[in-house]
Design a protein around this nucleic acid. Sequence first.
RNA 1: AGAGAGAUGGCAGAGUGGUCGAUUGCGACGGUCUUGAAAACCGUUGACUGUUACAGGUCCGGGGGUUCGAAUCCCUCUCUCUCUGCCA
Length: 430
Amino acid sequence: MLQPIFIRDNRDLTLAGLKKKHFKDAEQAVDRIIELDRLRRETQQELDAVLTQSNAKAKEIGGLMKEGKKAEAELAKGETAALKERSKQLEEQHKEIEQTLLEELVKLPNLPHESVPEGRTAEDNVNILEQGAKPVLPAGALPHWELIKKLGKNLAPIIDFELGNKITGAGFPVYKGKAARLQRAMIAFFLDEAGKAGYTEVQTPIVVNAESGFATGQLPDKEGQMYHDAQDDLYLIPTAEVPVTNLYRDVIVPEADLPVKHAAYTPCFRREAGSWGAHVRGLNRLHQFDKIEIVQINKPEESYNALEEMVGHVKGLLEKLELPYRILRLCGGDMGFTSALTYDFEVWSAGQERWLECSSVSNFETYQANRLKLRFKTADKKTQLLHTLNGSALALPRILAALLENNQQADGTVRIPAVLVPYCGFDVIE
RNA sequence: AGAGAGAUGGCAGAGUGGUCGAUUGCGACGGUCUUGAAAACCGUUGACUGUUACAGGUCCGGGGGUUCGAAUCCCUCUCUCUCUGCCA
């Protein structure tokens, strides 16, 4: 959430940023916020003045009572009625204005960093790096949803969508045998790599309350994308970003503890309402998937270095997995609501001859921190909002798809990259 | 799930209607002393809002109420602890 004080001091900057994100009716929204903020302060000042008077009166009466001057005290009491009524009125007004202001603020997305390219759709994202050679597949190579049917011997298919349909529904596959083992291996590998890079592992709940959803920006913006348990008003997390970042809700972090770096493995749940189509076969889009997330909390002046460090970490993972990938700097129109700068990683899926998004690394600057009330104390003892960042390192299903497809061999088996062999205990899936 | 107790500043822990934003202890920070450190002593030490800066205002789990005045009384919600039940 943007701060009203920033918006009022930087109206043109705000408008330019919103335009880059293709936010509709920005001028109207911004001016309404500025006006509401002015009203809020005006009402606050008037209310404060009334409260000052009534506080003084109450003290005066207290003094009189102590001295036993009952008659005078009673007289003074009579003078408080008008003040009381006025303060009640103003308080109500103030509360209402504040509520409206919050509702309006919540509608504004984060402002993009200056390096964010102009553009409206994924077509306009800027390819900043392409790394690794696309493999040349043997004759008869298949996309993963075909390939899995031929793998697993008596367990075939090793990834079973039909079984998932039976016990839950579409988008909830069942992994069997070496597919299950390979996923477990990747989880351990990714967590170990994060640990080596200084990220402290955490295990958090995977259902969260509405406050948590609000603080990281999923609510109210993405309400319909999360599974919701109405009975207890809890949400299944769409990403570990939500619980991990919320560990620091309402926290003033000692400067010496910065940067905070965490890694977490969790299942992720996404309703993906209305996004099913021809391109989402197999593992390409699921309602439940596993992901290792890295999260950083850092001082404003350090956060873009941290972002680069996170990008470097994800690059390292893909290179160790021997997967060709590219990095895109997302354009204003394609970025997330809460992000100031996002890099997407896409892995080459040779069986489909497509790029698949497998990681998204973002700096949210103070947008989440403002909602989280996540701050630190500067050397001159001022409290200041921190910056939050996160990235996938990595999301499993599309990595799994790429591993299966890219490593198909002429004999129909799949080779496992060397780095995972110690983790899974086999070097080929047949 | 049933019965009872509780929720106060970084922590511990006072405060049951009137200068209480809150006694005290610990911790932290600054200073004196010391070759240095410890000890001792002195001082400082919450957040939000607001102002050019003061001032002012709000916050004692959340919300509501009583009162001229609430950390203190009432209602309600949430959470925690103890006992009983159930249970991976």
